[in-house]
Simulated assay, not measured.
Amino acid sequence: MLTNKEPLIQIDRTDRRILALIQEDASLTNQQLAEKVGLSPSPCLRRVRALEESGILVRTVAVLDHKKLGLSLTVIILIGMDRHTPERFAAFEEQVADYPEVLECYLVTGHDADYMLKVVVPDMDQYHHFLLNRITRIQGVSGVHSSFVLKRVIDSTALPLGYLS
């Protein structure tokens, strides 16, 4: 049971529009953003800074094309652990956080796995090396199931802001 639930931060329609535009194109200048939301630059910048200070706007990033960079293989890995202890989980999480191939790591339920990782590597040989020399060497890993992505059907970083009131 999660007990440390953070209270929701209230944002208005303009804030939602700012967030949607930044998610779509983080390279927009403050001037461009202000024009698109119908504000002058100063109030727009104040709103962006308030969204940053509140922790809603965590960071802005560039999205790169995996294949054009030679990172053609995306793998979803389900990992089972031998013991379900906070120490075992913390050690695993600390270890995978150091692997640049790991784009996402989730502690999950509902599968015969404890963790789900999204990994990007150049090819099957590199994945084989990653699996045998990194993942299976982490203490406590008792099972690994790999699924290889054939096609990216939806590949978005944008959160669905339509649910916010």
Results as ranks from 00 to 15, higher is better:
82 D>M: 12
68 K>F: 00
151 K>G: 02
99 Y>G: 04
61 V>F: 05
68 K>S: 03
121 V>E: 00
43 P>T: 09
113 A>E: 12
106 Y>P: 09
20 A>L: 02
94 E>V: 09
71 L>T: 07
117 L>R: 03
46 R>L: 13
27 S>C: 04
101 E>H: 14
140 G>R: 01
132 L>G: 07
67 K>Q: 06
31 Q>F: 13
83 R>Y: 02
95 Q>M: 05
148 F>Q: 09
137 R>I: 08
47 R>Q: 07
121 V>F: 01
56 I>V: 14
49 R>W: 07
37 V>Q: 13
16 R>P: 05
3 T>N: 13
15 D>T: 12
136 T>H: 11
144 V>P: 01
156 S>V: 11
160 P>Q: 05
82 D>L: 12
151 K>S: 13
120 V>N: 03
146 S>F: 01
125 D>K: 13
144 V>N: 12
95 Q>I: 15
140 G>D: 08
7 P>E: 05
162 G>Q: 13
123 D>T: 11
146 S>K: 06
58 V>H: 13
17 R>T: 08
79 I>F: 04
44 C>T: 07
99 Y>M: 03
161 L>I: 14
17 R>S: 02
108 V>Y: 06
113 A>C: 15
105 C>V: 14
139 Q>I: 02
111 H>R: 12
160 P>T: 05
82 D>I: 07
25 D>F: 00
85 T>E: 01
14 T>F: 07
51 L>E: 14
13 R>W: 00
98 D>A: 12
61 V>S: 12
111 H>C: 06
8 L>Y: 12
101 E>F: 02
77 I>C: 05
84 H>Q: 14
15 D>L: 13
58 V>K: 09
131 L>C: 08
123 D>G: 03
142 S>A: 15
83 R>C: 12
12 D>L: 10
147 S>E: 00
146 S>E: 09
93 E>A: 06
129 H>Q: 09
138 I>H: 06
58 V>N: 01
23 Q>M: 10
161 L>W: 12
127 Y>E: 01
58 V>Y: 03
107 L>W: 01
22 I>E: 03
85 T>C: 07
52 E>A: 01
155 D>P: 02
73 L>G: 05
59 R>E: 13
126 Q>I: 07
114 D>A: 04
127 Y>I: 02
